[in-house]
């Protein structure tokens, strides 16, 4: 939540840095501890689940009303694809920002739309993944793996969703011609948040999905 015209109301800042940008970085620093707590919990509960399904290995689990042998739930190809899309969306928003700063409206709108689509695709991938896991017998309360996994990735997904909403708002402004180069900071702030959400996934992907 930032101020529409914070910089206009104050004399040049003590550090020379934009106040809103400083705020978003402060917020990002704080968020590091939020995700650290979630990741810690996931790791602490690794291998502590009393019943299946488990992330990688086969296990006994309750499915269709009876205990049976279940496969590990993770679908690495699917999540790899989602990961790649999220990574590329970071690149897209860099291009969009450079368009905004140069006043190249076509570049701005094109790449920003691509970013939003990428973000939506990632969220869609996650919804599909959760749905899929659920049908493999992995409910939210099934075991400590499922609880910590869904909470961690769910909060990340919520961040992606908020990022999509934020970027879409900026996109609407850009389409209406209300994002001239001197207001490119409005996109830069959203982009910083977007990159942060991306780097969190850069940690989650190997730590959660690839480490057995």
């Amino acid at each position: 939540m930032s101020h529409a015209d914070a910089h206009a109301m104050h004399p040049p800042t003590a550090t020379g840095l934009d106040t809103r940008k400083l705020a978003i970085w402060t917020f990002i620093g704080s968020e590091c501890l939020f995700f650290a707590s979630l990741i810690s919990t996931y790791l602490v509960y690794k291998g502590k689940s009393l019943v299946g399904p488990l992330p990688h290995d086969a296990s006994q689990c309750m499915l269709d009303g009876r205990m049976q042998q279940c496969e590990g739930v993770f679908e690495i190809p699917l999540v790899t694809f989602g990961t790649a899309v999220l990574l590329f969306s970071s690149y897209f928003v860099v291009k969009a920002l450079s368009g905004a700063q140069r006043g190249n409206r076509k570049q701005l709108i094109g790449w920003l739309s691509a970013t939003v689509v990428g973000g939506l695709f990632f969220v869609g991938m996650q919804v599909y993944e959760f749905y899929h896991f659920f049908h493999k017998g992995l409910g939210y309360t099934t075991n400590v793996f499922s609880a910590s996994f869904y909470t961690l990735t769910g909060f990340h997904g919520t961040h992606v969703t908020l990022g999509v909403i934020w970027l879409s708002t900026v996109l609407v402004l850009a389409i209406r011609g209300k994002l001239p180069p001197e207001k490119a900071l409005n996109l830069e702030l959203a982009a910083l948040y977007w990159h942060f959400v991306d780097v969190v996934w850069i940690v989650i992907f190997p730590v959660v999905y690839l480490m057995k």
């Binding site: 509960y45 502590k48 939210y140 309360t141 075991n143 400590v144 609880a147 910590s148 909470t151």
Partner: peptide
């Protein structure tokens, strides 16, 4: 909150939590 509202077992030993 999720332990109490949704039945997860983050802090409940019977469900593997600690």
């Amino acid at each position: 909150l999720t332990d109490r509202m949704f039945g997860t077992g983050f802090y409940i030993p019977a469900q593997g939590g600690d």
